[in-house]
């Protein structure tokens, strides 16, 4: 039996996260419509197909920090101006991009591509934590900043990592938590607010 290409395209698109059958149908028909027409969007289908093949062929993990890149080492690891002595551990590439956007951090990263979640079958081996330990041991790393998310799995991962790193006698830190910039106390959830209170800072003589 010959498969209907329109239906197949819809089904393929619906496999993407955040895309339901309706959005998939809308996207599919848009792609089909533009590929039939003439004009600026005429090559959308071909362009898209090419891009998909390109990322599959060219994108790989940085040998150093596990970031996504197209060469052996990512642009951050190749940059000699980055501080080689601090390492920031993040759950995923978007987290790293967010930190980069802040412009405050000038050290190197390590991307875990996940967090410990025994329920979902993610343990220390799946996160390749051994590799991270080798990295901190062999390079001149002095501080590891753990920047996993502030939820059950993220916090457990941070604790676990800290216990693994402890023998290496490094400085191990965790991102601070508290009042977001520009927010009003009135609207803050009580958990964040009590954490901010506990971790308050002296204003004079610091």
């Amino acid at each position: 039996m010959k498969l209907d290409p329109i239906a197949t395209l819809q089904l393929q698109l619906a496999r993407l996260p955040g895309i339901g059958p309706r959005s998939a149908a809308r996207l599919a028909f848009y792609i089909i419509k533009t590929s039939q027409a003439q004009g600026k969007n005429a090559n959308l289908a071909e362009d898209l197909a090419q891009s998909l093949l390109d990322v599959q062929k060219e994108v790989r993990l940085c040998r150093e920090c596990q970031n996504l890149c197209t060469e052996e080492y990512c642009s951050i690891c190749r940059d000699p101006r980055r501080d080689q002595s601090t390492l920031c551990v993040v759950e995923a590439v978007p987290d790293m991009q967010a930190l980069e956007k802040s412009g405050t951090f000038r050290g190197l990263y390590h991307v875990l591509h996940g967090v410990l979640a025994p329920l979902e079958g993610v343990g220390p081996e799946e996160l390749k934590l051994e590799y991270l330990l080798d990295r901190t041991k062999n390079k001149s790393v002095e501080e590891v900043i753990i920047a996993t998310n502030a939820n059950v799995d993220g916090d457990a991962t941070a604790l676990y990592l800290a216990s693994l790193l402890e023998p290496q006698e490094l400085r191990i830190t965790r991102l601070a938590m508290g009042v977001p910039l520009g927010s009003e106390l009135e609207y803050l959830d009580s958990a964040t607010l009590s954490r901010a209170l506990l971790e308050r800072k002296d204003m004079v003589n610091t």
Partner: peptide, 19 residues
Amino acid sequence: EQKLDVQLLKAFDEQLIKY
């Protein structure tokens, strides 16, 4: 199915205790 990783258990114990 798996060996017991005591450190891993401890990391989740702390979450359990906290919450």
